[in-house]
Nucleic acid binder design. Structure first.
Length: 462
DNA sequence: ATCGGCTCGCGCAA
DNA sequence: TGCGCGAAGCCGAT
């Protein structure tokens, strides 16, 4: 049987240890929480087939995950439940165990011949993998499955802007837009004795966990899982894709893909989405290009940012020109100033901004165009830019299903000048790009957006 | 409705 | 070293 192609650039040994005479190959799943289009999983299957063993998949479910709350945990568990079931049908046992992910991986890996892990670009994700590689008694191999073009193949440094990374990505993208079909397994792992928690009742699992419950689930808007993601994306391609170019910056419409939350939890593969786009009618050339721009160029610029910028979550990550100009305007008079509480309660004088905040709280999502406006106003209405940065990131990560993503950190930093250029100097913002309510009125039907959010809020109260 | 100016720095051409 | 141009804009002039 022909092996599925996994480029060498996706595969990295994280330690120098050898394969061991164990009883299975362990796939420690953490970022890529899916059964399909998962290079780490397929690599593990290939390796297991070679030594005549099965693949055990383990996921570490942690109490009090930093900044996560009931909303995020619910969405994630909905996805994990499905992934476990789908893997089971393929003869692959998946267990979810409570504990710190690295500890769970190490414990499950004691009898493994080899540990395979997937890849994440945030600080803690990298630390966990490092720890497992250091302490494991066998070889640990990391397989990238979270971007279309592996980061190091694109660039070895923090890119300055979209325009600098764009040609570098397009130089390689063709090589990586290749199908990844499931490799047939030679030996089932379903008989392995290792026990995990029962995922059949998600609310029962959640009840027993220690976690922040201040923000409720949004399953009636967005349910977690690969099947849901595929369904939403298929609907997008069928109904909304034709409007994408015209409407993607029109917040009163819903002509967006809604994939970012599924991408964040690894429930859908960016490669799968890109390949689906290639299958669309060639007549939608502009929409195809615009979507690939968002999915690959901008998303992978965000990955590049967090990977090569150690302090991606602090104010000091901003470029010098941005910090300088904001410092020069620190003392400027602020006509409006709101506390974090006022902001979170959507109690500002600006009904457009309030609507954006309400959409975020009630659905776990905010239209992309409003995310920019929302962030820019946080900067305008905070006492200092440093405080604005902190508050914006905190609220972002609290309510968005895709909070704490590389795109969250990059999106917030963009508000303060990252990947952007200088503009006409004005109060508070200095040379940072400004956005105004009048711009919303000029460019979109912002009243219709407010009404849309009113309706969404009513729906969420039901 | 459309246009130019504003402004910084990267990366390429020379 | 010079020059073009860019993650989503604003504003005033025409």
């Amino acid at each position: 049987m022909k092996l599925q192609v996994i480029h060498d650039s996706r595969i990295q040994s994280l330690n120098d240890r050898d394969l061991r005479q164990g009883s299975f190959v362990l796939y420690w799943m953490q970022q890529s929480q899916r059964a399909a289009y998962n290079h780490a999983l397929e690599y593990a299957v290939q390796q297991a087939n070679q030594v005549g063993q099965g693949v055990l998949v383990v996921f570490g479910l942690m109490d009090n995950y930093p900044e996560a709350n009931l909303r995020h945990y619910t969405f994630m568990l909905e996805g994990l439940q499905e992934t476990k079931a789908v893997l089971g049908k393929r003869g692959i046992k998946m267990i979810v165990q409570k504990g710190h992910p690295a500890d769970v991986a190490l414990a499950a890996g004691r009898k493994a011949s080899l540990i395979v892990c997937d890849r994440g670009y945030l600080r803690h994700q990298r630390q966990w993998r490092k720890k497992v590689a250091r302490k494991a008694g066998c070889r640990v191999v990391q397989v990238e499955s979270d971007v279309v073009v592996p980061l190091e193949a694109v660039s070895g440094k923090a890119e300055y802007a979209a325009r600098t990374i764009r040609p570098k990505i397009h130089n390689h993208i063709k090589d990586y837009l290749v199908e990844l079909k499931p490799t047939k397994i030679k030996k089932s792992s379903l008989q392995l004795g290792t026990k995990g928690i029962d995922l059949s009742d998600i609310s029962a699992v959640l009840k027993k966990m220690s976690l922040n419950r201040s923000v409720g689930p949004v399953s009636h808007f967005f349910k977690g899982g690969t099947a849901q993601a595929r369904q939403i994306f298929a609907d997008f391609l069928r109904q909304r894709f034709k409007n994408y170019v015209e409407n993607r910056n029109q917040p009163q419409t819903d002509d967006v893909s809604h994939m970012s939350k599924y991408l964040h939890f690894g429930q859908i593969s960016p490669l799968y989405l890109a390949l689906q786009i290639l299958k669309t009618d060639k007549g939608y050339k502009d929409a195809r290009e615009a979507f690939i721009e968002e999915l690959v160029v901008r998303r992978e610029l965000a990955m590049n940012f967090v990977y090569y910028t150690p302090n991606y979550d602090s104010y000091a990550c901003l470029p010098n020109w941005a910090q300088k100009t904001l410092a020069e305007h620190k003392k400027d008079r602020r006509e409006y100033r709101y506390t974090r509480r006022q902001l979170e309660n959507a109690r500002t004088h600006d009904e457009y901004w309030n609507a954006a905040m309400r959409e975020m709280k009630s659905t776990g999502f905010m239209h992309n165009y409003m995310r920019m406006y929302w962030g820019k106003k946080n900067l305008e209405w905070s006492t200092t830019p440093e405080q604005a940065f902190k508050t914006t990131l905190a609220i972002n990560n609290k309510y968005f299903l895709d909070g704490r993503d590389a795109n969250s950190y990059t999106g917030v930093a963009w508000v303060f000048g990252v990947h952007d250029r200088a503009w006409f100097e004005r109060p508070i913002f200095g040379k940072i790009r400004y956005m105004a309510a009048s711009g919303l009125e000029r460019k979109c039907d912002i009243q219709a957006y407010v009404k849309k959010v009113d309706a969404l809020e009513r729906q969420s109260r039901k």
